[in-house]
């Protein structure tokens, strides 16, 4: 870091490098946006799925679970729960409905959210839709 490498050279690398990679990133974003329809299962993005995503968010499910590996690590991955539950939306709904109000002594338990039938159908369809996104074969196995 002596006279051969001056402050203005460092500054130019900062401005030039940052600007260049911002542009590259925007270019990649453009390309990703155009590739996504082939991968993101948008064909199955029905109104019920959209409602389900809202139910997912309004109950802060991500505060305990991961979805495609992102979220909290307190409860199982749900990106593939539809498949883990034998490709059954009914099994998902039954599990959510069955949660005891006051938990299970000494153990982790999902809260009882008192969802309506419509909301239950939404969340189940949302999790089905999530499981059909092309995630490059992640997770490694059915356990998530």
């Amino acid at each position: 870091m002596h006279e051969t490498f001056t402050k203005s050279m460092a500054r130019n690398i900062y401005y030039g490098g940052a600007a260049f990679f911002v542009l590259v990133f925007l270019g990649l974003t453009f390309d990703t946006t155009h590739t996504l329809p082939k991968r993101d299962n948008r064909a199955n993005l029905t109104e019920t799925v959209a409602l389900g995503k809202k139910v997912w968010e309004n109950n802060n499910c991500i505060g305990c679970h991961t979805l495609l590996g992102e979220g909290a690590y307190f409860a199982p991955e749900l990106g593939n729960v539809y498949k883990r539950f034998g490709n059954s939306t009914e099994a998902i709904k039954a599990f959510i409905k069955s949660r005891p109000e006051n938990g299970v002594p000494g153990r982790r338990s999902m809260p009882q959210f008192h969802l309506t039938d419509q909301e239950l159908e939404g969340i189940a369809q949302f999790l089905k839709y999530s499981s059909e996104i092309n995630t490059a074969n992640w997770p490694p196995n059915i356990q998530g």
Binding site: A18, R39, N41
Partner: peptide, 29 residues
């Protein structure tokens, strides 16, 4: 200040495209 420029240059040059390490398994290319 010269050091500061070098550090933040490296941070942005690696970190912006480094966002890609979150795009492995979420449906992105």
């Amino acid at each position: 200040e010269k050091w500061l420029y070098v550090i933040i240059a490296m941070a942005l040059i690696t970190g912006i495209i480094g966002t890609g390490h979150h795009y492995f398994w979420i449906g992105t290319p």
